[in-house]
Design a protein around this nucleic acid. Structure first.
Lengths: 193, 193
DNA sequence: CGAGGCCTTGACCGCGGTCAATGCCCGTGG
DNA sequence: CCACGGGCATTGACCGCGGTCAAGGCCTCG
């Protein structure tokens, strides 16, 4: 796999980076490959890394009263990290788990700080990634707050059509804030029509 | 009112700005004063401005099936804008309304772009504001999704203790994603204990 | 073949929504 | 100065969505 190709893609899909910046970024990234599901971050760790997904998918989840609650999915071309730990430098409430065999790029906060200080355009890249995430999250608040379980599910399918083929329903249910049982009933056509 | 003092406060509370940048920022800001409630942004407008609240408070809301749904409050020292319209350059789904007599600073997206291009540290300021907002929103998702109406309300009081003195309960209820009736019952001590 | 993960289905019930009536406060005009 | 009206909040009666608990189906893998 050619990292510089991936960095070009990032530069093209988020915000342009100068060649110098791209070079430094390539050198700062570390390739991770996984054959099957694996846990990148555990609850309680200081999770000062962010991961860019080249192939495969991942989720961030936490335990609420012992229950596994997914609160973020990431697929090819997206970033994932434990945002609380990453930005606030506190122990992570989240686990981050790979859901499929795939390839990730890892980037530490230290290196992000160095790159952000050195390159104005890298600072802009980070701003853009954060902004996109903010807008997604905003949509999610609206969806969670006033839609029925069914609408939330249909909404998710609109944004991530293939998700049910790639992610267990349990995780999708907790992501939507509904139970697995409810999700199962929604998906059953004879309750629907 | 002395704008440069306010800009110093912003620089201190978010991320430091050079003197040159602060100077340019002071010149880019426009002061707005309001004696009573007023609407800054209407649904459907291209809302390419952001507002910093010096005194008073404001809310962003939208109409969902004719119902008024608040989805953001801002108080002294915070920014507010119609984030969808501002970042994506689409017509605003939101109204933005001043809730109290007060003072705001207005800054247009054009000027933010110019300042961001000229000053690396201004780019960083924007990143920091967006990041803080992202983290708040993340907390809110968790709160909305798995807490009871009462817990959501108590949560809000934890973060914004004085809010009930400054904002009508109707708006607080819709912000929390509950009805005014439910909020009223929660607040009534004889149902609580 | 058996065990365990994942999903489905059923029975039941409680939180919080809807609808509607009433209360309270304050500004405006007779 | 009081009466009225309108905005905001409270209270009550009712009910439905979706949660909980429990049983059972259906893979896959050892």
């Amino acid at each position: 796999m050619d990292i510089s190709k991936v960095v070009e893609t990032i530069s093209a899909s988020y915000t342009p980076l100068t060649d110098a910046c791209q070079g430094d970024l390539v050198r700062a990234l570390k390739i991770l490959r996984f054959d099957r599901s694996a846990t990148l971050v555990k609850e309680g760790q200081y999770a000062d890394k962010t991961y860019f997904i080249v192939e495969g998918c991942a989720r961030a989840y936490y335990l609420k009263d012992g229950k596994d609650i997914t609160d973020w999915f990431a697929f090819e071309g997206e970033f994932i990290s434990s945002i609380n730990s990453f930005f606030l430098d506190v122990p992570s409430p989240h686990f981050i788990e790979i859901l499929e065999r795939g390839i990730l790029l890892e980037l530490s906060r230290d290196k992000i700080t160095i790159l952000s200080d050195k390159y104005h355009d890298f600072e802009r890249l980070v701003k853009t990634v954060v902004t996109k995430t903010l807008l997604q999250l905003q949509q999610r608040v609206v969806s969670i707050q006033f839609e029925t379980a069914q609408q939330k599910y249909e909404n998710l399918l609109g944004v991530q059509p293939g998700i049910t083929q790639r992610v267990p329903l349990t995780h999708i249910a907790s992501f939507l804030g509904i139970t697995l049982e409810t999700l199962s009933r929604i998906r059953n056509p004879k309750n629907g029509i």
